[in-house]
């Protein structure tokens, strides 16, 4: 039985449809990440699962039980909010134990559970403090502790790391991943950061304008994006796209070079190739142009070449040192490329 089942849910604000008949299942213990640009409906979808947002059609079932119309506290779920939402007038211990207290659990049992959670999250020394005396990372831990203490069926995370600085974000990301491995709980996580999505998720749900663009493992989305949108959203730096003509089982690149393709598509299209799949020199078809920018990153060097209007970015080994102005050929294995129709679908 799926831990969570979403069936044809529709959400409208007035005439605007923000969630358009979505369906998918989440298996027990799975880490699912909703990812997409601002306004794609990912937070709304999470809030619908939480019971904080009503919807016009469809069904949400948790552990096989339809929860439409049930209040948030009746759904056996816990949520970590973007702004932490800690109760400022309560101590850390009271914050973590609050849901248990509301459930009528006796004081000793609450204290024992709070202590256990605090130990796991290494915030035992902070239990008597008020939220305003905590750092951002500590507040985030308390917010996670508040969710953990309830042993919920599903953890919901609404962009929980977006208020942290870059370094802390990387640390907390690793901690959330470890937490998932340790608890084995079902987790649903919303982010607009594709790196977070790739590193955390068992499966990623890519959303665009209230629709599911693609569901798959990070590797599936990376290797076989279903659309140009997914291809450009997943992977960093983003995939390159060059305009091509397709005819008779062959792609004609901007320079006139032809490469064979299994695609039956004919006419104009976009050919996508990831920066890390381009190399300087070597055999195979190539994209040619003048180097316009070189960005050394240490381990890698990002090289941008320009050919007319087109810009192509390549991630090359750190030890190559190309010079701006140099005319180069960036070669690639045609099997690594992807072809997209003008409408953006994979063809």
């Amino acid at each position: 039985m799926p831990a969570l089942s979403i069936r044809n849910v529709v959400k409208r604000y007035g005439a605007a449809e923000v969630i358009r008949s979505l369906s998918f299942d989440v298996s027990p213990g799975e880490f699912i990440v909703f990812v997409g640009p601002s306004g794609c409906g990912k937070s709304t979808l999470l809030r619908m699962i939480a019971g904080l947002e009503d919807f016009q059609a469809g069904e949400v079932a948790i552990d096989g039980r339809v929860v439409n119309g049930l209040a948030p506290w009746q759904r056996d779920i816990a949520m970590v909010f973007q702004d932490y939402a800690l109760y400022p007038h309560m101590s850390v211990a009271a914050n973590i134990g609050f849901s248990l207290k509301m459930a009528g659990i006796d004081r000793k049992a609450v204290a024992a559970k709070v202590d256990r959670v605090a130990q796991v999250l290494q915030i035992g020394h902070l239990l008597d403090r008020k939220p305003k005396a905590l750092s951002g990372g500590q507040r985030q831990r308390v917010a996670i502790g508040r969710a953990m203490v309830r042993d919920p069926k599903i953890f919901l995370f609404d962009e929980p790391l977006s208020n942290l600085d870059a370094k802390l974000r990387v640390d907390m990301r690793a901690e959330i991943k470890q937490l998932h491995q340790r608890l084995g709980a079902t987790m649903i996580y919303v982010t607009h950061d594709q790196v977070e999505a790739m590193t955390l998720a068992d499966r990623i749900v890519v959303l665009k304008e209230g629709r599911i663009e693609q569901i798959g493992t990070p590797s599936e989305l990376y290797r076989a994006p279903a659309s140009r949108f997914v291809a450009s959203f997943i992977g960093s730096p983003a995939m390159n796209f060059v305009p091509v003509e397709v005819a008779d089982g062959a792609i004609t690149l901007p320079g006139g070079e032809r490469i064979p393709t299994p695609s039956a598509h004919a006419g104009r299209a976009s050919f996508g190739i990831r920066p890390e799949h381009l190399s300087l020199g070597g055999d195979g078809p190539a994209l040619r142009g003048t180097i316009s920018l070189v960005e050394p990153l240490g381990a890698d060097t990002l090289v941008t070449i320009a050919s007319g209007e087109e810009r192509v970015l390549a991630r090359l080994p750190g030890d190559v040192a190309p010079v701006p102005g140099e005319v180069v050929a960036l070669t690639f294995d045609p099997g690594r490329g992807a072809l997209f129709s003008v409408e953006g679908r994979r063809v």
Partner: peptide
């Protein structure tokens, strides 16, 4: 902040408890 009230909803507060335990203090 609305998230505070929503957080209380998730934590099992009925409206009167949200008012009494979270909002009024």
């Amino acid at each position: 902040p609305r998230a505070l009230i929503e957080s209380a909803q998730m934590d099992g507060c009925r409206p009167h408890a949200i008012l009494g335990r979270i909002a009024l203090p």
